[in-house]
Design a protein around this nucleic acid. Structure first.
Length: 216
DNA sequence: AACCGGATCGTCT
DNA sequence: GACGATCCGGTTG
């Protein structure tokens, strides 16, 4: 009996047109599709991080609009890709109304389709769970670079963009964890801007910000 | 499992 | 001219 597979429904642009602290945890468990000429790779998102535009000292948009971060100031539902450490790309999904300049950094995911292609792009990964375990590993696995900066993740037609994010299977609310970001010397409240799925093996263990229990 | 240093360059001061 | 929204390999415990 043929029925619509709800989990494969693309998230509409409205999904991203909300405060970034709402969107970020809501992206967990969703399916990122990156359908490049080399082949499709799909990721179940397991770890994300919110960046709150000009109000956020850790955000690339903190000091206003530049050539690099222009996409963050634009329409929600587009992809912001930046290059860092001289060798890595990281990708965000732009959130909030035009001008808000907030975004969600995609930090980790589980490869659920296109595993062979992802392995080819990540030859040093020893286990499948390491393929997209980390923001730069994630972009490698799905084949994203700066040429895709600004691409639409809510295209009217699939042919208009390699990206879309499908409804997927969000985790039970009790499995969503949050904690402070690393690398941001923040004043202000210790807002838990990093979100991950508790216990998921694709989440970077040393960044989990869970008090380490001594082995016993 | 935890810690350390090297790699490498676009972007903004 | 300095510094990253990082990863990797080697070393130590």
């Amino acid at each position: 009996m043929p029925s619509t597979d709800f989990t494969r429904t693309p998230l509409p642009r409205d999904f991203y047109d909300r405060p970034v602290l709402e969107v970020a945890p809501d992206l967990l468990g969703r399916t990122l599709v990156c359908d490049l000429p080399e082949g499709p790779v799909e990721l179940r998102l397991t770890e994300v991080e919110a960046y709150d535009g000009p109000n956020d000292p850790g955000s690339h948009a903190f000091r206003g609009r530049t050539a690099r971060n222009a996409v963050m100031f634009g329409e929600p539902g587009h992809v912001y890709v930046y290059f860092t450490y001289g060798m890595h790309y990281c990708m965000n999904l732009v959130c909030g109304p035009v001008g808000t300049a907030s975004g969600v950094l995609l930090r980790a995911g589980e490869v659920v389709a296109g595993t062979d292609l992802a392995r080819k792009r990540r030859p040093t990964a020893r286990k499948d769970r390491e393929l997209a375990q980390g923001p730069a590993r994630l972009t490698l696995a799905v084949g994203v670079d700066r040429t895709l900066d600004g691409a639409d993740a809510c295209p009217a037609e699939p042919a208009d963009s390699p990206f879309r994010v499908l409804t997927g299977t969000p985790p039970l609310p009790g499995l969503v964890r949050s904690g402070p970001r690393t690398g941001v010397s923040g004043d202000g409240a210790p807002t838990p801007w990093r979100y991950w799925i508790d216990g998921d093996p694709t989440v970077s263990p040393y960044r989990a910000h869970v008090p380490r229990r001594r082995a016993r």
